[in-house]
């Protein structure tokens, strides 16, 4: 397996997003909040002539604390024709997966277990590969 991964940090942990799905990584400038939406949806941000839905990955995984970073980096992905900006603590480089996806005995822990596809080995050690669709669906209470 040599899939490309976008290495990032979500809720303080190393994680990876399938890089082929990521259109670009941007630093979010201004977010227009949308009242009435669940917390993990931060709002909309414009990218060229399109509005991206900004999703806070940490909140979407079900953690209490939102993503915190000064530069507000986000990975832009498209799901069902809609564009989303997945906001993470930090986004680093793209690197290659060194192993196949493996499930970890005993699971990945709350939050991660639901939205994680499994674990992959990389240069910098094992990371959780996240499931973009699950993140966009939001935390379990809302996804249900």
């Amino acid at each position: 397996m040599n899939d490309l991964l976008l290495m990032c940090t979500i809720a303080g942990r190393d994680a990876a997003i399938p890089a082929l799905r990521v259109q670009t990584v941007l630093e979010i400038d201004a977010i227009t909040p949308i009242p009435g939406t669940p917390d993990f949806i931060c709002g909309l941000t414009p990218l060229r002539s399109q509005a991206l839905t900004v999703v806070d990955c940490a909140l979407a995984l079900g953690f209490d604390q939102p993503c915190s970073s000064p530069e507000r980096r986000a990975a832009v992905v498209e799901v069902d024709g809609h564009l989303y900006a997945l906001m993470v603590d930090s986004a680093q480089d793209v690197s290659e997966a060194r192993s196949d996806l493996v499930a970890i005995p005993g699971g990945l822990g709350e939050g991660w277990q639901r939205a994680g596809l499994g674990m992959v080995e990389t240069e910098t050690g094992p990371v959780v590969l996240v499931d973009i669709e699950k993140i966009i669906a939001g935390p379990p209470a809302l996804a249900a």
Binding site: L44, T53, G81, H82
Partner: peptide, 17 residues
């Protein structure tokens, strides 16, 4: 059009720039 998660609020019909 707007993302399904926002549609679920049933408050908005779309977005514009």
């Amino acid at each position: 059009p707007i993302a399904p998660a926002i549609m679920q609020t049933k408050l908005y019909a779309g977005t514009t720039l």
